[in-house]
Design a protein around this nucleic acid. Sequence first.
DNA 1: CTTGACCCTGTAGTTGCTACAGGGTGCATA
DNA 2: TATGCACCCTGTAGCAACTACAGGGTCAAG
Lengths: 136, 136
Amino acid sequence: MKIGELSRATGTNVETIRYYERIGLLPEPARSAANYRSYGPDHRARLVFVRHSRELGFTIEEIRSLLDLSDDPTRDCTEADRIASAHLAQVEDKIAQLSLLRDELKRIVGRCRGGLAGDCRVIEALADHSQCESQH
Amino acid sequence: MKIGELSRATGTNVETIRYYERIGLLPEPARSAANYRSYGPDHRARLVFVRHSRELGFTIEEIRSLLDLSDDPTRDCTEADRIASAHLAQVEDKIAQLSLLRDELKRIVGRCRGGLAGDCRVIEALADHSQCESQH
DNA sequence: CTTGACCCTGTAGTTGCTACAGGGTGCATA
DNA sequence: TATGCACCCTGTAGCAACTACAGGGTCAAG
């Protein structure tokens, strides 16, 4: 299949596929006589793996490690679990941090009475960290 | 005060202060005879405003608008409330999205029995989106 | 007089793409 | 046969919001 077909089959931008190849996440595919990239089911499966991992928020480097593991089925797989666990912890941290942030924003928003900017509670709150209840 | 003092006073990297100046978020300060930047309380207050807004996740462009409002106290301030509300909505979206993600990751993590990568449930789950319960 | 901490400008790197510019290929239609 | 259009190629530059140098100047203490 050509790059456009792979793009449609996986919901991945054509430019992104070429980018993944450039950074070595996808192997260089065979080329047609016209120098067009030609992909098979293995390429497709690998790209699906990459996209799915990206959707789950893994970084390119994490995905690289996960691909290395999956390329060598004789390796110990606790490493994969370690990467995923570390990522889960990061996501949970991020949620906690955003929740604090949301609470502060809620307190700030809606204090506006529609008056002049000079009296605006929103702007005042941004200028003065001590009005915040938490370390965000 | 010199840039290093302002840096310590606000917990902002020196390079970041110069960056804010370059993109027009902070005004160009006066210079000493040795061409050192020289800041006063107004600069400091403005930088505190910027940093606090950044900590709350506002983009530079949003901060630019908020600073414009705060620079002209006769303007209507509903705009400030609108920016903050839109940002709050974005944060809430992000939290919801990360929560889905966290749930999927939790299901994936810990399925590893410490065997070989060839049988790894973690890697398998990443390769196969259909094992997921939600659209993430 | 030298050491070290600070300051300056300008540029390049980071992450994960995305968007051209400027060209070539391949197939259907007039 | 011409020509239009969708697709493909490479290479480079842009995005956000910084961060990290390189290569130089300034200043006070010992």
